[in-house]
C-alpha cells in the first residue's frame, strides 16, 4: 500500500511548485495557474486524510468539494478582473499593474 507520507510529500511539492509560479511569473493568468496548482495540492491532502482516517467520516471529501466551489468562483472572478484590467491598461504583466503605490 501507498503510505500516507507519499501523498503528503507529493502535495507539498505540488504546493511549492504552485507557490513558485505565483511568486515568479510575470503574467497574471500564469499566477492564477499557480494558484490552481496550490488549491489542487490542498485537495490531494484532504482526500488523502479522508482515505487514511476514518473512511466513513466524509468530511475530507466535503471540504474538497467546497474547495472546488471556491476555486471555480476564484477563477471566474480572477479572470474577469484580468480581462477588465487588460481592457483598461492593455497589459497583463503583474509588475506593470502597480498604480496602488506610494
Amino acid at each position: 500500500m501507498v503510505p500516507l507520507s507519499w501523498y503528503l510529500i507529493f502535495s507539498a511539492i505540488l504546493f511549492s511548485i504552485g507557490l513558485f509560479g505565483v511568486l515568479s511569473r510575470r503574467n497574471l493568468v500564469a499566477i492564477l495557474l499557480g494558484i490552481e496548482l496550490m488549491l489542487n495540492s490542498v485537495n490531494v491532502n484532504l482526500a488523502a486524510f479522508w482515505r487514511y482516517g476514518t473512511v466513513t467520516n466524509i468530511t475530507g471529501q466535503v471540504f474538497a468539494i467546497i474547495v472546488f466551489a471556491v476555486a471555480a468562483a476564484e477563477v471566474s472572478v480572477g479572470l474577469a478582473l484580468v480581462i477588465s484590467v487588460y481592457r483598461k491598461r492593455n497589459t497583463v504583466i503583474a509588475d506593470e499593474i502597480d498604480m496602488l503605490k506610494f
Binding site: V22, L23, A94, D95, I97, D98, L100, K101, F102
Partner: peptide, 17 residues
C-alpha cells in the same frame, strides 16, 4: 515606510510568506 509599498502584488506576497 511608504517606499515598501511598491504596488507589486508578488512582492507583498513574498513579504507575507
Amino acid at each position: 515606510l511608504r517606499v515598501i509599498q511598491t504596488g507589486r502584488i508578488q512582492q507583498y506576497l513574498m513579504l507575507a510568506l
